[in-house]
Design a protein around this nucleic acid. Structure first.
Lengths: 344, 344
DNA sequence: GACCAATGCTTAATCGATTAAGCCAATAAG
DNA sequence: CTTATTGGCTTAATCGATTAAGCATTGGTC
């Protein structure tokens, strides 16, 4: 069982002081005026002993951990999985380790994650915050540790973020449907939280209705509890039954989409003949469904890339400028959202 | 910008030494014979100042980080996403932080991840190793840091692991198909790597053939490169074309399954009328496909749970016993694997 | 009153790395 | 020959926490 090699071990082997070894291995040869031969010797010994600096000791001394924290809402959701992958790749490229935490949309767990990571001297955060996280984010702001929000943000919090234009995306989707059929009955399925992106999507839906001269949107909105499949089934089935002649269903997240499609399959409702469907985020299921699904496509890689970019900017240039990036989502139109009278 | 509170700050506020504060906050009051009033006062001050111990300093002193490393092959794959979630939950319950790394099936990245995490004084590892990771695992063994493999293992490496019985799973699947139709032409699609689980699944496939008196399995095997969708399309399409009258396709991972189903949809091949299909791992797509897909279901939560359990056992009891858990997978039979003459 | 034990605290070393400051010898400048 | 400069290294403080060892003080016992 090989013990880890420390600077001390190298110093002893080379017959010099620990400090000298440190200078050499940090390429401070010029500043510290080190003899080229000594430097070479030390480097060779370090290599032979396979020296790997203890990052914990470095962190303690420097106050920097060379690690960033990524807090997602649910790591088992491929949406966040893909984001995590991009963010990890980008951060690794810059020599940083990513510590991923999953809040599971739970405020307490979210708080614990933030605290745990702060106590590990994390250099920066990329965060998909949970509902009610404002206080915690203010607290984080106060620590001076830079952070960037992704996917979600808070209107009354002046923070950096990278999100898509959710209002616009849902507006265009709803408009697309209403342009096909002005009086369409469009069920809108969303989570019953107060997160800005949830609200923006809903506002987009409503605004499109209004702009088409429709004021009867309220009855079409179906809000469901997070992480409660049983209640979802009840609420969603209720919506379908409550609205005979419903034309379309619009799901506002990928998890809702998947659960919804499963219910529709079970109810044996034919898409798009009996019902049009529009989903959110990408999923393999959309392509593999018997009727290819129309959906809002978020540029995940770009979100991840921009978030890392902004975070590192803040970390290195210590600037206080607030960068808020709003990306445009793509509306992917497939067969599931076409009314039969519109099909070619 | 609030600076972090250290023991020193509390000590000064309380007018005592740093050591005393440390004893009090670590509940060593009895051993250190501390006056109850002093202890109370220190605790109150610590609370008022919102003291949070610096985990980096603790780690340096103790050599323990209260963190475990999870290295998966691809964090954007929901299979690993779900595993990560379970492992994180279980570890958090025990007061440990999880640092997730994604190797992307790349040996170099895998090595870097291991090294990075060792240098951060990680207390233990849960690892889904990549091909060729044997050396690195031996090296890890040599450091004395406990680790448990998941999903994959190496035959000639005496390590702890938690896997499913891949041979058995694929044997039963193949058997199921061959029992429906003794002369079935079953295309078998797998990755061309040498990982044990890949091999075991293939061996299960072959053994089932042999046990049914079939020796013509070779022509049905289609090995494809990892992470190369274009080549996959070519190879898989070639397989379909090369075997006119092919009855069934058997995919040996979830990513292959999804890619395969997409190709079959594009080729407009009707399942199960024109072709039976059997997939691996779970995916929402399997349920949502027009023909519900039969698949091998791995008990992900149990794998995660057992891995954490074994790892913590090793970490705390410092035992050298090698625990190798082989779980049984469930074979979920849906419509996609029934030949039309067998349909009810 | 001398001695011991118990109580309540402080001192100082330590983990591994960084880095300002200092020391000594050799050489250059005056 | 003295002083300054440079080169080449070491010493020691530091990051924040832990913990063995030690130092007073008090009280009790013979």
């Amino acid at each position: 069982m090989a013990r880890k090699i420390s600077l001390k071990d190298i110093a002893e082997a080379a017959g010099v002081s620990v400090a000298l070894v440190s200078y050499v291995l940090n390429d401070k040869e010029k500043e510290a005026r080190i003899n080229a031969d000594t430097a070479k010797k030390i480097k060779e010994i370090a290599k032979k002993m396979n020296y790997q600096p203890n990052q914990v000791a470095k962190s303690l001394k420097s106050g920097k951990s060379l690690a960033i924290g990524l807090i997602v809402a649910d790591i088992s959701n491929p949406f966040f999985g893909q984001l995590a992958k991009t963010i990890e790749e980008e951060s690794n490229r810059r020599g940083y380790t990513v510590i991923v935490g999953s809040s599971d949309e739970d405020l307490e767990k979210f708080k614990r994650l933030i605290d745990t990571l702060i106590n590990r001297q994390i250099d920066g955060f990329i965060i998909a915050p949970v509902e009610g996280a404002e206080q915690q984010l203010k607290y984080l702001e106060n620590t001076g540790i830079p952070f960037v929000l992704i996917d979600r943000f808070f209107k009354d919090l002046e923070t950096c973020y990278v999100v898509i234009d959710n209002f616009d995306a849902m507006y265009r989707v709803t408009e697309n449907i209403l342009q096909q059929k002005k009086e369409a009955k469009i069920g809108y399925v969303c989570y019953e939280n107060s997160l800005q992106h949830t609200e923006d999507r809903l506002r987009g839906f409503i605004q499109a209705f209004k702009d088409q001269g429709r004021e009867d949107y309220q009855e079409f909105i179906c809000k469901v509890e997070y992480n409660n499949p049983v209640k979802f089934n009840d609420s969603f089935t209720e919506l379908i039954n409550r609205l005979p002649g419903i034309d379309t269903v619009l799901f506002s997240t990928n998890t809702l989409s998947i659960m919804g499609l499963k219910v529709l399959s079970r109810l044996n409702i034919k898409i798009p003949e009996e019902l049009s469907v529009f989903c959110f985020d990408q999923s393999d299921s959309y392509d593999l469904f018997y009727c290819p699904i129309s959906y809002v496509h978020q540029p995940l890689d770009q979100i991840g890339y921009e978030a890392v970019e902004i975070l590192f900017n803040k970390m290195f240039h210590n600037t206080n400028t607030i960068q808020q990036v709003v990306l445009e989502a793509d509306i992917i139109i497939k067969k599931s959202s076409s009314f039969k009278e519109f099909k070619k």
